[in-house]
Design a protein around this nucleic acid. Structure first.
Length: 918
RNA sequence: GGGCUCAUAGCUCAGCUGGCUAGAGCACGCGACUGAUAAUCGCGAGGUCGGUGGUUCGAGUCCACCUGGGCCCA
């Protein structure tokens, strides 16, 4: 019992219990108070710019936000610890419809009861409130950044940047105004971007309508079709008043179908399904023709005093309907395109609230959602309604109010994607950019290839105004040159609020004249910009305006894969149009968070994981470790189970480091370090493994494969350290003389690995690394681990011969343990250390084992190992006859060899004696 | 409906350009230790590599189709 006091047992004040509730706030304080982020900005190597994509401040951060910022933080810290200067300026996307809607809900007031200016003040307060909240939440999970000066899209400087960029794009001719059908929310009374649309199932009417042929003169089928009809199918009867054409596919085969003495045109493949819908049983086919042969036929609109032209369009499909498509250019994207081709009129009898105008007398004042029954009634009266059913299908809805939206032609502002080859230039820039994963290039490429012009106007208040002035005399919009400069200058000084309180005359310098007619009186535009234009301008408003911190083009953009359509694309388009170059050199995307079964998180499924909850339960490092542990290129699964598992992994890493720490207690590296050449083989072996680990970790960080960083780190802790090296060297550490070379050698290795591990894990296990670092006694210690550099490569450790020999020894060790397990199972022994083994093996193995015969008992942690050459590899294990040393607990033949200490082995007796003489 | 993408043990991941009985760790089961102890060690049992078909002497790895998930669009 008293011999225990002669051991060098591990000792540390680093708590075994993970008290993150105490330690994490303390470390946050250290980083904040010590200005650690500011300090790492003094790094000498070149800049590495990770440009933050701004989240939307309208709630607590969710797991996706946490995931995104943690990934960025890992990059920032890794690059920084490699010596780069890595400025990270977090941003927020503060304007936009969501805040307006949410605010109106909170205030429970009508927007009309406030002036635009007052309303905008409330919006600003709202946005800033959540910016403040989210900022704290991001800081809490250990994210480093310029938190005291983030970029906000509502800052006058930022706003002015957007206005200027708009001016540059306008100057180059990319900005234009045009009538165009766009998604329109009649409830919010605003145009919606594609990003603001959600598709949901809706019940719609499904009707077949007859359009009688009015004029077929000159057509080769005139005799057949003279009294015939085309049948169209639609799910939006309310758009029929705006019908101006019927589209058929030029290549499809259409049949003349006779029913009750009347001839109808239907695509061949759709006759049966259509007939079924219309309840036809006795129809017959009397002939057929290619769609192209119908071009130019004129039909009569079933109830409007208007003609409906038969036109050709390739987008017509054979999925549903009749193959003859109702065309209303004011109410559909494709319709509009066909309309342009055939110069069809854009009939648009629906006002902003969704009510019909007097253009359709019998529907005047009726809301589109109430118009369907009236239209159906009218069709019935005219005998044009052939069938009416209900069907469920996906219909676009407003992302905010969740109500269905309509297509409506309005005057809108656009960025032309094809002006001056913008699309092609953008595609070129996409090719020049590095995409992680590589398929991102194809994804964004095909999106850019097929995207329509970008509608950048919104009929709202909370945003940056479209800086245009309408000439009071001729109506021409003026938005370039001095008009733009005047607005930019004003906004820089007073913010965009000024736009909403000042008159045009107060904004513009005296003497400005309309570019068209030369008149001098103007009216301000009332539309604001799409928020995607604002955030897409960040490369200019942030990176370009702050040349001290940044170079213009960022090294990396890192966002979810949804941003291929969103921010990556809007950033690209604004940058290429204004500067001819992509604003990023590389783009990294991550997947989305899903539950254990791979389903997306939703409140209704009840599978939402809240990051603050994770932080509360496990601490921020476990959340960070989850981020690192999962391959983020795919979807990332989280659940209670998974977090529990991550927490176990975390504990293992933490305990392994704690154990290392507790064993270098009293070790002064400047005095006690043993040089490499004097280390034991096993020490050099583990150092080599450690070197391999560091190399793997560095490479994985570098290629953004953080899950590989985690798995290799974790595997090293579990397999190489905990289950092998640390277990083996306990004997040396505890039982050898405290200042002995053998113990100091082990400590040297422990110290080396601990300090290396701490640094290598720091980008991920930010808190734990800093915590451990604070407990270490290192010469030249910094105030933070983040001021350290990652360990350099150490070629000296890469001893390949050692690796080969020891890998084999460990294999044999594993074999031996299987055999020994048999002894334990039969209750002959209870501990592995009670066993002797005899190995017979081939010449090669023999020479390996024999060369280290003396060390084998320690390496195997058993009583004795004998080795002989034999035909077959075999291991025999039996209970040892040696007695147990009371001090080191090993079973050794020399126990009792010293009369003064009859219960000790020779080594322990020596150590105890030398202590006594002290 | 279209584009892109993913699918290896209960979980997180390996498995490079196709080649021995598909690997780790965790969780699980059994056992040991009590000198890493709200720890640690040993052993074991888990997979027809989402499905079908094909190319090949040979496929988790290549091709086609299907199923299911995700993102984006309609």
């Amino acid at each position: 019992m008293e011999y225990k006091n002669t051991l060098n047992l591990p000792q540390t004040s680093f708590p075994i219990k993970f008290n993150f509730k105490d330690s994490e706030p303390r470390l946050l304080e250290l980083w904040d108070g010590g200005n650690i982020y500011e300090s790492i900005q003094k790094n000498g190597k070149e800049k590495y710019i990770l440009h933050d994509g701004p989240p939307y401040p309208n709630g607590d951060i969710h797991l996706g936000h946490a995931l995104n910022k943690i990934l960025k933080d890992i990059v920032v810290k890794f690059k920084s610890m490699e010596g780069f200067r890595v400025p990270f300026v977090p941003g927020w996307d503060c304007h936009g419809l969501p805040i307006e809607t949410q605010l109106l809900k909170e205030l429970s007031v009508r927007r009309s009861s406030l002036s635009v200016y007052e309303f905008r003040q409330k919006c600003r307060e709202y946005a800033l409130r959540y910016v403040g909240m989210q900022k704290e939440e991001f800081k809490r999970i250990g994210v480093f950044g310029r938190w005291n000066a983030p970029y906000l899209t509502l800052d006058p400087n930022y706003e002015a940047g957007v206005i200027e960029l708009f001016g540059m794009m306008a100057e180059k001719g990319y900005v234009f105004k045009s009538l165009k059908p766009i998604h329109w929310c009649p409830s919010c009374e605003t145009a919606l971007a594609e990003a603001e649309i959600e598709y949901e199932d809706d019940d719609s009417p499904s009707i077949f309508v007859r359009f009688s042929v009015k004029n077929v003169s000159g057509n080769k089928h005139s005799s057949v079709l003279k009294n015939g009809s085309f049948i169209i199918w639609t799910t939006t009867p309310w758009t029929l008043p705006s019908n101006v054409a019927i589209a058929v596919h030029p290549d499809f085969e259409y049949c003349f179908v006779e029913h009750e003495g009347h001839i109808y045109v239907i695509a061949k493949e759709l006759i049966e399904s259509s007939a079924k819908s219309m309840g036809w049983t006795d129809h017959k086919i009397t002939g057929s023709a290619k769609g192209a042969e119908f071009e130019g036929i004129v039909c009569a609109h079933p109830f409007m005093d208007r003609e409906s032209l038969v036109v050709m369009d390739e987008f017509v499909t054979l999925e549903t309907g009749t193959g003859c498509v109702h065309i209303a250019p004011g109410h559909g994207e494709e319709d509009f395109k066909v309309g342009l081709k055939y110069k069809l009129p854009i009939v648009m009898p629906v006002d902003p609230r969704g009510c019909f105008t007097d253009e359709v007398p019998f529907l005047q004042g009726v809301h589109v959602w109430k118009a369907n029954p009236i239209v159906l009634e009218t069709l019935k009266e005219k005998g044009a309604l052939l069938s009416s059913e209900k069907m469920k299908h996906q219909y676009p809805h407003c992302w905010r109010c969740k109500k269905p939206v309509i297509f409506r032609a309005t005057e809108q502002w656009f960025v032309s994607v094809d002006h001056d080859g913008l699309r092609q230039k953008a595609l070129k820039e996409i090719e020049k950019t590095k995409w992680f994963p590589a398929w991102g290039q194809n994804r964004i490429g095909s999106m850019v290839e097929g995207r329509p012009d970008w509608c950048i106007s919104r009929q709202r208040s909370w945003g940056i105004p479209i800086p245009a002035f309408y000439c009071k005399k001729c109506g021409t919009p003026n938005f370039k040159g001095e008009f733009n400069k005047a607005v930019a200058a004003m906004v820089k000084k007073e913010g965009t609020d000024a736009w909403f309180v000042k008159e045009a005359a107060d904004i513009l310098p005296k003497g400005v004249k309309c570019v068209k007619c030369g008149a001098a009186e103007f009216e301000k535009e009332t539309d604001i910009m799409d928020v995607w234009l604002e955030s897409g301008a960040s490369h200019f408003a942030v990176l370009k305006s702050d040349v001290q911190t940044f170079d213009w083009s960022a090294d990396l953009y890192l966002e979810g894969s949804d941003q291929h359509r969103g921010w990556f694309q809007t950033s690209l388009l604004t940058a290429v149009s204004a500067f001819g170059k992509a604003p990023f050199k590389a783009v990294l995307t991550h997947g989305f968070t899903v539950d254990e079964k791979g389903k997306k998180m939703s409140k209704s499924l009840g599978n939402v994981v809240d990051p603050q909850q994770v932080v509360k339960e496990y601490g921020a490092d476990v959340l960070r470790l989850w981020v690192a542990s999962t391959d983020f290129r795919n979807d990332m699964a989280v659940s209670k189970n998974i977090l529990k598992q991550i927490n176990e992994g975390f504990t293992k890493i933490r305990n392994t480091c704690r154990f290392l720490l507790s064993n270098v207690n009293g070790f002064d590296p400047s005095k006690d370090r043993i040089e490499y050449e004097k280390l034991l083989d096993i020490d050099r072996y583990i150092l080599m493994k450690f070197e391999l680990l560091l190399d793997k970790m560095r490479r994985s960080y570098d290629s953004f494969e953080f899950h590989a960083v985690y798995h290799s780190l974790y595997g090293f802790c579990v397999n190489d350290l905990s289950a092998f090296y640390l277990d083996v060297i306990k004997d040396r550490l505890y039982c050898d003389g405290s200042g002995s070379v053998s113990r100091r050698a082990a400590q040297t290795v422990c110290f080396e690995m601990l300090s290396g591990l701490i640094k290598a894990m720091a980008p991920i296990l930010t808190f734990t690394a800093e915590d451990l670092y604070s407990y270490m006694e290192v010469p030249g210690k910094k105030t933070s681990v983040f001021l350290e550099k990652l360990p350099d490569k150490n070629q000296k450790y890469m001893d390949k011969t050692i690796e080969k020999v020891w890998d084999r020894v460990l294999q044999i060790r594993a074999e031996a343990y299987k055999k020994i397990e048999g002894l334990r199972a039969s209750k002959e022994i209870s501990k592995i250390s009670e066993s002797d083994i005899e190995i017979s093996c081939n010449k090669e193995d023999f020479s390996v084992l024999n060369s280290m015969a003396g060390q084998l008992p320690q390496i195997f942690m058993i009583s004795s190992v004998s080795v002989k050459q034999g035909q077959e590899f075999n291991i025999i294990a039996r209970k040892t006859s040696n007695s147990k040393c009371e001090r080191c607990w090993r079973y050794l033949p020399d126990v009792g060899s010293n009369n003064d200490h009859p219960t000790l082995c020779a080594r322990c007796a020596d150590v105890v004696k030398s202590k006594e003489t002290l």
